[in-house]
């Protein structure tokens, strides 16, 4: 038989072995992204801080054209939103979230992930959108029971009354 026949046979066998190796690398090896007895807690929301507003004086209003006379004027820049997350009485996350946008006119946002061992936790989460105030705008506390591989999300929706747990 000609060399070509053997080359087709050996070439096919070698290519087959090469592709099998590729197939093993493609799907045969496991990556442990999260330890088996762990769960994932994510804190993520988009919330706007307040804007600095003041009432205009009568003199100021009088100087303005009729159609532009608004009682209150606000700075376009928004205040940062402060958020705290406590687990079992210990602070896990506490941060001032700056407003987005080049001029700081956008809402503040956060996306933070915490890998936690499965188990029970006392969770407290607080949010303040006005830095001039000492008290928090919203506070929520709950008992949390995390199972292995569970994904638990803390969101914030003003229209839903504050923090939302998924």
């Amino acid at each position: 038989m000609s060399n070509r026949f053997y080359q087709i046979v050996f070439g096919t066998i070698l290519s087959f072995v090469m592709i099998l190796g590729t197939a093993i690398l493609s799907s045969g090896l496991v990556w442990q992204s999260l330890p088996a007895d762990y769960a994932l807690l994510r804190l993520s929301f988009i919330e706007s801080g307040i804007r600095d507003c003041r009432n205009q004086t009568k003199a100021e209003l009088a100087e303005l054209p009729q159609n532009m006379r608004r009682e209150q004027v606000c700075a376009s820049r928004r205040a940062p939103v402060y958020v705290e997350l406590d687990l079992n009485g210990e602070t896990l996350f506490a941060q001032n979230l700056p407003p987005t946008g080049l001029l700081g006119t956008g809402p503040s946002r956060v996306y933070q992930r915490f890998e936690l061992p499965a188990g029970n936790y006392d969770l407290t989460v607080r949010l303040r959108n006005d830095p001039a105030k000492i008290e928090f705008t919203k506070i929520m506390t709950r008992q949390l029971s995390l199972k292995p591989a569970q994904s638990f999300v803390i969101d914030y929706k003003e229209e839903a009354g504050g923090f939302v747990f998924n």
């Binding site: 799907s27 088996a36 292995p148």
Partner: peptide, 8 residues
Amino acid sequence: TVPQSINI
């Protein structure tokens, strides 16, 4: 849930 061990 969150993927833990994956055949990547």
